[in-house]
Design a protein around this nucleic acid. Structure first.
Lengths: 335, 335
DNA sequence: GATAAAAATGATACCGATACCGTTTTTTTT
DNA sequence: AAAAAAAACGGTATCGGTATCATTTTTATC
């Protein structure tokens, strides 16, 4: 494409009348260089429009200053918020984020991890704890620091930042029970390889058990993280002869789909059926009725993960493995 | 960090009993190599867990297979959707996306562009047409192909993919006029360095003019792209003695803020005041009342931009500069 | 079966920065 | 002012691939 010769640090050095290595130091490690030469080199760099070739630096320094992050999707704003915050945390330190979306597919995740390793990312940020054996082997082989976000697990090698999806689902379920709902249905996000979904379902079940409410498989549904899928699940629940008086959806997106379905069917929330969600999407405060849901520190997760990554890159070994950022219930009108 | 010696293509070559360059070809350009050696090299690569060092390849090939994209923010799902689609378009071709968010700041944009150039991104995707002179000079100097998204301009050097924000605002305004609203207020997104906002405001003004409606500066407000800011603008409009009977917000986020404000103040939409937005955020179909807005082909913008970028990377010169993907009005209950 | 053409492989140099170690210059010490 | 220490600078090698051109091997042609 570009035929014009690119300016290298050699040219800058020549222009400033110093050796390339001195120019390199002047630009990257000014303390090692006399003030006056630093100025000359910087002037030369500016004059010649020099921007260092990242690949070259990476090759010789053997570090990339890049961090790879994988989330299921950017279309769900909860992950977009986390990534936005992660970017804000690390970009000022000159660290570039590589972003991959796996669409809840383990295969895609493996693919992306390979790409990130090829790019020699200095660290990885992964969503959840569930990865293929192959992925974990790669990570071990290449000795890449990893931070897992959006869920917590004790006893793993990797640091994690998030909140207990189990506890959150447990508390919400208990809240619904205490509110007096007798028959609480559940619409869960896809469970396959998704520890957040699994933990939420477990929390729901355990809360029922601890409060002597029978678990009824017939009012459990599984849904994709899309409005129509949530709507469909709710439709199915509404047709039951002994329909639930309350539905707990394990994601706001699913809850919104369910909410739309109820409105379309003329089913009143919360009078005919109560509804609770999970995630606290911005929308939840704006629907009629407002959606009762679990508020998650999305941005804090990104910021904290970013800070941990930065510590890792500096070789700091003093990193707490489990970083619980908590959650709380956002009680509104829907349940 | 990692002390273990990384596997290089040299090792792979030795293991397979060929020269490094042959191994390189076997992996990257199999047609140049005998089938049997290709298999041996691939087996060796797999056996040794070889993943090529991207920086090295980049340095010698003088291309990065990376594309940089800059959007204002990821927290607004409209941009997240576009980026998601862009990723889907280029990732299968082995192109990695570098994502930068400038938070509507030109300075940040310059910074990010410099970073991307240092990374030797093969192409850039920028939001809108407004950049600093410095940025444009950099782009010219380094001869980087650029695609601009989310707005259209004739006569620029860069290809653009999007829709006419001017036309869209014009049509929406005309629709509101035809609907019978007499006094149509306007809450615009921040105008500074934002051609989308500017064009929308221009479209609104021109539609008024063409329909002999007087432009009244006193019912124009400017707002940030945040709910509270939209709410505040609406609050200000509501206090007017001759308040508008309709408000056109140049972004759904702002419109939602305005909607919340009206609900809190007991102002009925559309009876007391009508409301229209712009962007067609997913939420708009779920609020009560549903939000009348402009539907934008967010995902198509990402896909098309991705395809154009891929063509550019292949050196294809046959690229149409202005790619109008259109829009339409989503008429719901709010206006 | 000799010759030309095509396919497969290899040797060497190079991409652009910095690490490493050595040399020169300046400053400090006594 | 001589010796020692510190600061500044530079030569060379190197990171890990691939481009380029040369060479060898295989296949095709008549």
């Amino acid at each position: 494409m570009s035929k014009r010769k690119r300016i290298t640090i050699q040219e800058v050095a020549k222009f400033a009348g110093v050796s390339p290595i001195t120019a390199s130091r002047a630009l990257g490690n000014p303390k090692l260089v006399k003030e006056s030469t630093r100025e000359r080199v910087e002037a030369a760099a500016k004059e010649l429009n020099f921007l260092p070739n990242f690949a070259a630096g990476m090759l010789s320094k053997n570090k990339s200053n890049m961090v790879g992050v994988i989330v299921p999707t950017l279309s769900n704003s909860i992950f977009a918020d986390t990534i936005q915050a992660l970017t804000e945390a690390i970009a000022p330190q000159g660290v570039q984020l590589l972003i991959g979306t796996n669409n809840y597919s383990m295969e895609r995740e493996d693919q992306i991890i390979k790409t990130f390793i090829s790019h020699r990312a200095d660290a990885l940020v992964l969503t959840g704890h569930t990865h293929t054996d192959y992925a974990e082997e790669l990570i071990r082989n290449f000795e890449i620091p990893v931070v897992e976000i959006w869920n917590l697990r004790q006893g793993r090698d990797f640091a994690c930042v998030g909140m207990s999806n189990y506890n959150a689902a447990y508390e919400m379920t208990e809240y619904l029970i205490n509110k007096g709902y007798k028959r609480i249905g559940y619409i869960g996000g896809l469970l396959a390889n998704n520890d957040r979904s699994e933990d939420r379902l477990r929390g729901y079940k355990q809360a029922l058990r601890d409060n002597d409410v029978e678990f009824d498989f017939s009012i459990i549904r599984e849904a994709e993280f899309e409005l129509p899928s949530g709507a469909e699940a709710m439709r199915s629940l509404l047709t039951l002869s002994d329909r639930p008086d309350c539905v707990f959806a394990s994601s706001d997106i699913i809850a919104f789909g369910a909410l739309i379905e109820c409105q379309n069917k003329g089913v009143s929330i919360p009078d005919d059926i109560a509804l609770a969600g999970f995630d606290d999407a911005v929308i939840g405060s704006m629907t009629k009725p407002g959606l009762t849901t679990v508020r998650i520190p999305r941005r804090q997760i990104g910021l904290k993960a970013g800070n941990i990554v930065l510590k890792m890159l500096q070789g700091d070994k003093d990193i707490s493995l489990v970083n619980d950022l908590g959650f709380d219930l956002a009680i509104r009108d829907s349940a």
